[in-house]
Computed example of a mutant assay.
Amino acid sequence: MSPVPAVKSADPGLQPSTPARARQLIAKLIAGPGDFSAGVRKAVPYESDSGTWSVLRRNCVWNREPLPADVLATLTRHFELPPAAGKGRVRLSATVTVHRTGADAAWEQARMVEEALHCDQQVLRQGERLTGLMPQPARLGEAANLYSEDSLMEAGQCVSAKHGGPYPYWWQQVTYGSMVASASVCGGRGYDTDALMKIVVNALPTMQVRAREELGREPEGKAGTPSTGGAPSTGGTASTGGTASPAAPKDGE
C-alpha cells in the first residue's frame, strides 16, 4: 500500500467568512476550458445562477433552489467538446462551493453518499437523466485517495432526449476545508469511458492544487514534501434523510 503523502492541511484562518470573499475564492479555484483537454470550450449557458444551487429531492429529481444558510457561495461552469470526426458532443461541468465551516462541507459530502444510495437513477431536467449510478467514497488514504481530505465518485450512464445515449457518465467531488469541488463528464457517440477520462482528468486535480495553495498550511510533524498535484482517486457521492437534500450541482451533463 502506498504511503499517504504529507498534504497541506486546510488552515481555518484562511477560510472565507463572507459571501464576497467566498466568491473571490471561487473565481480563483474553479476550472476553465483550458483545465480540460484540448478543444474543450465554454458551453451556453456557461455559468449557473450564483444565488441558487442544485438540490436532489426525495423523488430523485434535481432542482435549483436558493442557497441554504451554511453555504457562502457556489458556482457551476458548463463546457463542451464539440462533435468532430464522426464523434458526438461531450458535455462537462465544474463546480466549487464554499461553506461557512469545514464541518458543513463534510455534511454535504455525507448527504451526497446517502443520495447516491437512494437514487441510482436521477432526473437532471426534463428529457435528461442519469442511470445505473454506482457511488464510491474514499477518505484520505483509502482506495488510492492520496490527495483529498474526502473524495467521492459516481459512475453510470447519461441519457438525453436531445443528445441521445446512454453514454458513459462520470462525476467526482472532493473536499478541502470549507470548500467542495466537483467535475463531471457525459459522453457522446463514439466515446468510451477511457476516452472521456482523458478529457476531464486534469480539471479536478487542478482545482485541488489551487485550493491547497490558497487555503493550506504546511503539514506539521510529518515526513515528506507536501503534494502539489496528481489526479484525485476515485471516490463516491451522498444525502440526508429530509425532504430536500442539498448537493453539488450535476447540471453540466
Rank of each mutant, 00 (worst) to 15 (best):
R189L: 09
A110S: 12
G102I: 00
T234K: 10
L81T: 04
P45F: 06
A143T: 09
L29G: 01
V98Q: 05
H118G: 13
T175Y: 01
R111N: 14
A223N: 15
G39R: 13
K162Y: 12
E214Y: 04
L56Y: 05
V7P: 02
K28E: 14
K222H: 12
K250M: 15
V90Q: 02
V159P: 02
V96Y: 00
R189F: 11
L133Q: 07
G229M: 07
C119K: 00
A161I: 11
Q136V: 07
A161H: 10
G102D: 08
S50R: 09
E47H: 03
Q126T: 12
R41F: 07
T228C: 11
R89G: 03
E80L: 09
S48A: 12
E128P: 01
K162H: 14
Y167T: 03
A69S: 15
Y176R: 01
G34S: 14
A22T: 04
L133I: 12
T234Y: 08
D192R: 11
M1E: 15
L75G: 00
P205E: 03
V4W: 05
A106E: 05
A94F: 05
H118I: 09
E115M: 14
S9Y: 11
R58V: 09
G224I: 12
G235E: 04
L196N: 01
D49Y: 10
K42R: 13
